[in-house]
Structures are given as C-alpha cells and as structure tokens.
Design a protein around this nucleic acid. Structure first.
Lengths: 200, 200
DNA sequence: CATCAACGAGAACATTTTGAGAACAATATG
DNA sequence: CATATTGTTCTCAAAATGTTCTCGTTGATG
C-alpha cells in the first residue's frame, strides 16, 4: 500500500502537530493545515492512513488519532523565514511570516550532494558546500551539471556541447583548472544544479 | 531484450528519483526529467521497461511504478566507494546516504532571512541569497552578525569591537563600502550567521 | 526509393484522487 | 438534560494522472 502525495502531507502534518502540541489535531485543523475546508475530506485521509497502518483511530473520540509508525517519506525540514534583512525593521517585527521548506524552495525533483574540491570556486561553490541538484538527464549549454563519466566518475562542472553535439565540454570554474572534453557517449548527465547550501 | 538508449535513460531516472524520494515519479515528472513534454511518450517508455522486466506497474495508480531489478550500472561496474561528488560514484549509488534536514543541518535556534544588497559579496553572500541565522544576543569578533541599529535598521555585517568595547564596528565584505562604527549601546545583536542557501 | 523501428507531440478517454458540503451520530461541556 | 462541537458517512463534481491512440519526423537498412 502506497500513500498518495496528499496522504503523505496529512501524515506529516499530524506528526508535526502532535510533536508540537502533545495531542493530535482535530479534523478541522488537519483540513486547514493542508489548505482545504472539508472535515469530511480530512477524515478520508486519516482513514486511508489508518488502513495503511500509520496510525489508529479511537473511533468517535475527539483528537483520537494515535501515531504508530515513523513517516518514511517526509522529513521535517523547514526553517522560519523572516523578512528581508537590511530592509529597515527589527527582526522580531516581521517574525513568523513564512517558512522555508527545502523541497518547496528548491523544487520537487531535487536531491543534495556534498561538493568536494575547488573546481567551481569561481562560481561561488566551495569545497564542502552542499549542491542542490534537480534530476534531469538533459542539460543546456551553460548549465552547471552533475556529469557521470564512463559510468565511473561523477563531477560537478559547467556543461557545453561542441563539435555538432559529438563532444561534451565540462568546464571548471577555476582558472587553475582546464576544460575537459569527452565523446558525448562517455558522459551521462545526472542532474542540473539549482541551488546550494553552506554551513559555517 | 535490449533496452534502447532512451529506455535506459528513463530507467536511470526512475531509479534515482525513487532512491532519493522514496516514491516513484509521475509520468509528467519522467517526461520533464528526460526533456520531453508528452506523458504518453513517458508511458510508452515505462511500458517498455515493464515488458523488459525492470519494473512493474500498478495499473491506473498514481506513482504506481515499482522497481524490480537492481540498477544494471551498479552491477556492471563495481564502483569505488567514495561518497562525495567528484570522487567517483554515480548518484544512484550514493542517494539516501546523506539526507539533508534543514533543522538538523543548521541547528535548532535558527531562522532565515533573505539578503538584500551587495555588502557581503566578498564573503560569498550575494543579493537574494537566504542567510541562516542562529539566535544569539552576543557575538565574537569576526562573526558575521545580524545587527539592529537604533532598534531600527537590521543589517548583515562582520562584527568587531573597538575602543575597549565602547564601540562596535560593522564591516561590510565589499571593497566599495566602508566600515560603520557605532556606540555599543546603539547596536543590538540579533543573531550570528551559520549558513546560507542559494537558489539559481 | 520503400520499409521499418524509434521517437515526440498531443488528442481522447479512463481511472484515480481530490474537494465541497450535507446529513447524521457520537462526544464533550455546562 | 440541552447544546455545541467533533467525528463519520455520503453524494456529487472537478482535477490530476494514467492509458491508448493517431500522426508526423527521423535515421537506418535493404
């Protein structure tokens, strides 16, 4: 039994709510939490989650949801997003405006890899940074891509075609390093850079 | 039964997506991932992969693809064991190894602000980046801080004391801009930079 | 040139998933 | 008990997604 996207969203909401408040949410609260207006629909989701074994329902009881399993899909990964800095107000004044969720922020089809090496420092990507990559098998000239060479070596470089598409150039953003040129058949694109994270 | 190049591409996409996200992609996502626009074509590929025995389809269900075989690339090339990118493994081999959780990654007492302006470009912080800040009322010389001046203006600068603690210097990381010096009582620290996010 | 297989676009249809809300039952509360 | 709140079960409709087509293009091959 697999969950639908919305069922996962509901499960995640229930887990967060329960963790924060110590009691399970009401159906109305679940509905509002996922942006709908119908308690009936919320109930249908909760029922589906019970059928899938993620929780149990104390029938009829208010706030009668008990969680059983960990949610294997979604992880809690949001940060509160405050207003723009340098815009003139104390941070407290604009707190709680929004939040950042990694998946929402960078897009759904993304994953993260840790970058090793200095081949992209001129693009502002440093050793140890986390690169956020969107799944794609194709790229446009100028994209920064994760390229797999000979099914062996994965590398992060700027992508460009040459020789009427027969060759692929992988261009480091570092004046000390040289462009690598391969037969197109030796290179497989695994994704395109869409963001990055850095921790100090 | 041999797969065509495109079928292999689709299989690779499905494998990586599933490894990283825990659920299979939708046909639309597959189409976008390989650079085409037609769900129908994506379906034809998935069907071919089912016929070839690589996966099974839960007919009609959304995200109803189940992978059956191991990734052929992993099996055919026994790969070196380094996890980081540029160090030698296809993404599907390391997916899931290094999941990023924003709160775990940056710490609990953190929030995010969008950076406006170029005062920190030499520190690699650009206009439009998201700065991740840890709540603190104190800072050490050299920290990059969110400082509130006269309870009015919040700004992101490098922090330093001077004059036996009577003054606070807020130093931009931009050679075109000048250090600002304030009486310590006019400056309140709101937090210290611990990370950043960028979206391309 | 004729044929064929692989491919991409997109229309048309089928099925699943979703949302609203009514009606009623059970529970909570004073 | 009386009332309000909450949970449960329905029906109907819409949206999203999967499925099956046709059509045209391209490149390889005989």
């Amino acid at each position: 039994m697999t969950l639908t996207d919305n069922q996962r969203t509901v499960l995640s909401f229930i887990q967060r709510y329960t963790a924060a408040r110590g009691v399970s949410p009401k159906l109305q609260e679940i509905a509002e939490g996922i942006g709908i207006s119908s308690r009936g629909v919320a109930h249908r989701y909760v029922q589906a989650l019970e059928d899938a074994g993620f929780l149990s329902i104390d029938k009829g009881k208010h706030r009668g949801i008990r969680l059983l399993k960990e949610n294997p899909y979604q992880r809690e990964n949001s940060l509160p997003l405050l207003g723009k800095i340098a815009a003139g107000k104390p941070i407290e004044a604009i707190a709680g405006e929004d939040e950042i969720n990694l998946v929402d922020f960078f897009g759904k089809n993304t994953f993260a890899v840790r970058v090793q090496g200095d081949s992209m420092i001129d693009a502002g990507i440093f050793d140890g940074d986390i690169a956020v990559i969107e799944f794609r098998e194709t790229a446009s000239d100028g994209d920064i891509v994760v390229a797999l060479i000979d099914e062996q070596e994965a590398t992060l470089k700027r992508f460009s075609r040459s020789g009427q598409g027969r060759f692929i150039e992988l261009i480091p953003e570092n004046t000390d390093m040289e462009t690598m040129i391969y037969d197109a058949c030796r290179v497989r694109i695994q994704g395109v850079l869409v963001g990055q994270l850095r921790k100090y």
